[in-house]
């Protein structure tokens, strides 16, 4: 492998890492607040990607303009799903939520297929010409994905750090009872958790669709690397999920020069299991 090939793979890894991070943050935050592994997260992303498709085809918007529509729509859908289903299981054992979200994953996936059909779509047809810098090929779409992801993550960081609600979310994932005692209406925080998780999920879905093609299994297929990102970063810690996403993305891409690319998802899986066994709190554990 030449140094150029290596750097090229790193670039691809950063792109998929950004997408994993967007999903992984949602998984991590939802886990922190609601204490369950949200198995429908991938399909929620797929749903967001299709919402953007609807906006693009019906309103003739560019992808970047369709993105906020998809984010708001998916946030609303996530809140609605929580209100109709998950909310009823807050007092139940956590496994009930696991099973329920597995069912919701199926519902979302089938709904996407019912509405848009089982076929493949792309947002914009035509070939974009990559920029070439020092023999490295960088696609405009990839730049768009990475830049937008950085913008979204910075906004998310500012929200968590400086807003009252952001602090309440962090407080609640530290200790829900103490948050309640401090006067936090935890159900309201839960609503915002879904709003943010859903919006970031939609962004991840749109970016993956932009990089590949839409189909009903689009983001179910990356559920494993996203969970791997959240777990590697220490589940419940959204910043960890960002680092975890990049790590998983880059390692997955690098692995393709040693093993059959068909086994890429297995690479994420192996890393995840290794971390679970070696350091269940995540390898990027901060100072709590």
């Amino acid at each position: 492998m030449t140094i150029t090939d290596f750097l090229q793979l790193i670039i691809f890894g950063i792109v998929s890492g950004a997408i994993f991070a967007l999903g992984g943050i949602g998984i991590s935050v939802i886990f922190g607040i609601l204490r369950f592994a949200h198995l429908a997260h991938g399909d929620m992303m797929t749903f967001g990607a299709y919402l953007a498709l609807a906006a693009i085809t019906s309103l003739h918007l560019p992808v970047l303009a369709a993105l906020p529509i998809a984010m708001i729509g998916t946030a609303a859908a996530a809140i609605a799903i929580d209100y109709v289903f998950y909310r009823r299981f807050r007092q139940a054992r956590p496994v009930v939520l696991l099973i329920s979200s597995f069912g919701i994953a199926l519902v979302l996936r089938s709904a996407v297929q019912l509405i848009w059909g089982p076929g493949n779509y792309v947002y914009e047809s035509g070939i974009s010409i990559p920029y070439v810098i020092f023999d490295l090929r960088i696609k405009p779409d990839h730049l768009l994905i990475v830049a937008s992801t950085i913008a979204i993550i910075v906004a998310f960081h500012l929200f968590l750090t400086y807003t009252r609600l952001g602090k309440a979310m962090r407080a609640m994932s530290d200790d829900p009872d103490l948050a309640r005692v401090s006067g936090v209406d935890t159900e309201r925080v839960v609503v915002w958790t879904w709003a943010i998780g859903g919006a970031l999920a939609a962004a991840g879905g749109v970016f993956l669709a932009l990089d590949t093609q839409l189909n009903p299994l689009l983001c179910w297929n990356i559920l494993l690397p996203m969970f791997a990102a959240a777990i590697v970063g220490g589940i419940g810690r959204p910043y960890g999920a960002i680092a975890g996403g990049l790590l998983i993305g880059i390692v997955e891409e690098l692995s393709t020069s040693f093993i059959d690319p068909a086994y890429k998802p297995a690479v994420a899986f192996v890393i995840m299991v290794a971390v679970l066994l070696w350091r269940p709190t995540g390898i990027l554990k901060g100072t709590t």
């Binding site: 886990f31 369950f36 592994a37 198995l39 956590p94 496994v95 696991l98 559920l223 494993l224 969970f227 777990i231 068909a262 086994y263 998802p265 297995a266 899986f269 995840m272 299991v273 679970l276 269940p280």
Partner: peptide, 18 residues
């Protein structure tokens, strides 16, 4: 833990499918 086992077994099935 239960939730990690859920993810891990999804992963196992996925690997077997691959």
């Amino acid at each position: 833990r239960t939730d990690y086992l859920a993810i891990a077994t999804i992963g196992v099935a996925e690997c077997i499918r691959l």
